[in-house]
Design a binder for these strands. Structure first.
Length: 560
DNA sequence: GCTAGGCGACA
DNA sequence: AATTGTCGCCTAGCC
């Protein structure tokens, strides 16, 4: 539901759904289209990403700046993140709205807006438009009074990004349904066979999908060791099964590990993905959520295209099903190398860490050499792995206990490494402390572009909650600043790809440090050059940004 | 049908 | 207690 604003006028767009039944839309479009195309008219609404798609599908152009009340509210009032329009109207305006749920239901019973009777919709729409408008006036005033950085973030990055994400969603991703079908049949066969082997090894009939039943078999029937406990019982997660497989030489833990891997792929990806293919264009249109994560990262759903498997062989089969939109096209992936660690080096100004990136070295090996005090050439795999784990863990606020558990090394060794690390990179240590101090002093932390996240845990009387608050304070600044960076790159890339002389390419997916493009084969060199230029130049940091680019006939082949 | 818990995919 | 951020599948228990 949108409101288009012209000087002295406002229109309400009773958009009912993405397809069909556009009687009201047609009439309104006719009246509003000239205003929507005027570059000085701000288009106001909630969830404008959706409205833009409807308008585009109806043939309208929307050229002016936009003001999305839900985005503005999420960024100006991050403590209310997740609130819907009705909760915001209640909290900020004192207005009680009929929740959208009352109209279309929720969960499995949810219906399309198209199915709502017109008379019900009319009352709801009038209220909704009124609240959206009043919320806009309120947030517009708050935005004017906001700190400069936050205002810039919202006006010049997040609002323009609404249209960028709308285009990405609308373009979608090609899916090789034949390959998925083949993969499904192959996986179903292997899963059925594993199921039999599992019953055989257990000497009992039980449901291996049930952690409770599996626990009974492993711990009661077979008498294996309880390695770890959950809130309610005995854990059977992968790390436990690996431990049991190594120390018990009973076949069951290994079989269940394999079974879990394959059923995960089958149940979460291979079987459901075809159901997301659009009847209109045969492509898959995932959703991207601009304020889906507390740190400023995007999230994705229906389907979540940010957690498509890549690590295992079977997982990579699934990536092979993601293909370009037509013949003579390829998928190109451009991903930031070590972006969070580079951001940490920049934010902390740590001289030694910056040196590694300036020299273009393997940063994990570099850190291993420095912390262990050996020449770079003498760093072995094991020491590099320790350094790599710490490099990742440091931005999560990892403890010696956690590092020891991850690497399965003695806690004393882990503590010694972390101490040496902090001594070797004092700038990083000081920066981490600053993040915590800011959270304590202000109750929130800020990213490089001034995005804010409240950290109420930091003031808790509970020691564990305070420790959590410290980790959140650190991680949010680093992860959120990296999210700011790629969003800047996306905004610029979208504009450059829309220019008259742009290569024939569309940006279609973002996975936190990676952008995927659907590219005409002929346009590949130009697109690669453009992505490198824009991504490496998105911010002027004190360390170089490095982007790895690869392309191929499928997403699996577009990995370097 | 709904929710919580366990688990695991990705960054 | 012990490493951040997501989304979604399956089971189990409750209504």
């Amino acid at each position: 539901m949108s409101v288009a604003v012209a000087p002295g006028r406002a229109w309400y767009l009773p958009i009912r759904g993405a397809e069909g039944d556009h009687l009201p839309l047609d009439a309104v479009l006719e009246a509003v289209a000239p205003a929507l195309e005027a570059p000085d008219v701000t288009v106001v609404g909630q969830n404008l990403k959706y409205d833009l798609q409807v308008l585009w599908n109806a043939g309208a152009r929307v050229d002016g700046p936009i003001f999305d009340t839900m985005i503005a509210a999420a960024l100006l009032h991050p403590e209310r993140r997740g609130n819907g329009l009705d909760a915001l109207a209640q909290d900020l305006l004192g207005v009680t709205l009929v929740p959208t749920e009352a109209l279309i239901g929720k969960g499995k019973r949810q219906i399309s807006m198209l199915e709502v009777p017109l008379e019900d919709l009319a009352t709801y729409a009038a209220e909704d438009a009124d609240a959206t408008w009043r919320l806009y006036e309120r947030l517009r005033d708050e935005l004017r009074a906001a700190p400069t950085a936050l205002r810039d973030l919202i006006e010049t990055l997040e609002f323009p990004l609404v249209a960028v994400l709308a285009r990405m969603e609308r373009h979608g991703v090609g899916l090789d349904l034949d390959l998925l079908e083949e993969t499904r049949e192959a996986l179903e066969g292997r899963v059925a066979a594993l199921r039999d082997e599992i019953q055989e090894a257990a000497g009992a009939t039980f449901n291996p999908d049930s952690p409770a039943q599996l626990g009974e078999v492993l711990f009661d029937r077979l008498g294996l060791r309880v390695v770890k406990r959950t809130k309610t019982g005995r854990s059977t997660d992968a790390s436990v099964l690996e431990t049991l497989a190594a120390e018990s030489d009973h076949p069951l833990p290994g079989l269940v590990l394999r079974y879990r891997e394959l059923t995960k792929l089958l149940g979460t990806y291979v079987a459901p993905l075809p159901g997301f293919v659009s009847a209109r264009d045969g492509r898959l249109h995932a959703s991207f959520h601009q304020v889906g994560a507390a740190t400023g990262r995007l999230s994705s759903s229906e389907p979540n295209i940010q957690n498509i498997p890549v690590r295992s062989d079977a997982g990579r089969m699934i990536r092979r099903a993601f293909v370009p939109s037509g013949p003579d096209r390829v998928l190109m992936s451009a991903d930031y190398s070590q972006v969070e660690l580079r951001m940490l080096a920049h934010l902390s100004g740590d001289a030694a860490m910056r040196e590694a990136f300036d020299a273009g070295l393997d940063v994990h090996a570099f850190v291993a050499a420095q912390v262990y005090g050996v020449p770079l050439e003498e760093v072995d795999d094991e020491r590099r792995q320790v350094a790599k784990t710490v490099n990742f863990g440091i931005v999560y606020g990892q403890t010696a206990f956690g590092l020891a558990r991850t690497l399965r090394i003695p806690q004393g060794d882990a503590a010694a490494f972390i101490e040496a690390y902090k001594a070797r990179y004092p700038g990083i240590d000081a920066f981490l402390a600053t993040c915590v101090a800011r959270a304590e002093a202000d109750g929130y932390v800020e990213t490089i572009l001034g995005r804010r996240r409240p950290v109420p845990e930091i003031a808790s009387r509970n020691r564990n909650q305070r420790a959590l608050g410290e980790r959140l304070a650190i991680n949010t600044v680093v992860q959120g600043s990296a999210a700011d960076l790629i969003k800047v790159a996306m905004r610029t890339l979208d504009a450059r790809l829309a220019a008259a002389d742009a290569p024939d390419a569309a940006m279609i997916v973002q996975v936190h440090d990676e952008l995927v493009f659907d590219v005409a084969r002929d346009a590949l060199p130009a697109t690669e050059a453009l992505a490198r230029e824009v991504m490496t130049g998105a911010m002027d940091l004190d360390v170089p940004l490095v982007v790895d680019v690869a392309s191929g006939a499928t997403w699996a082949d577009a990995k370097g």
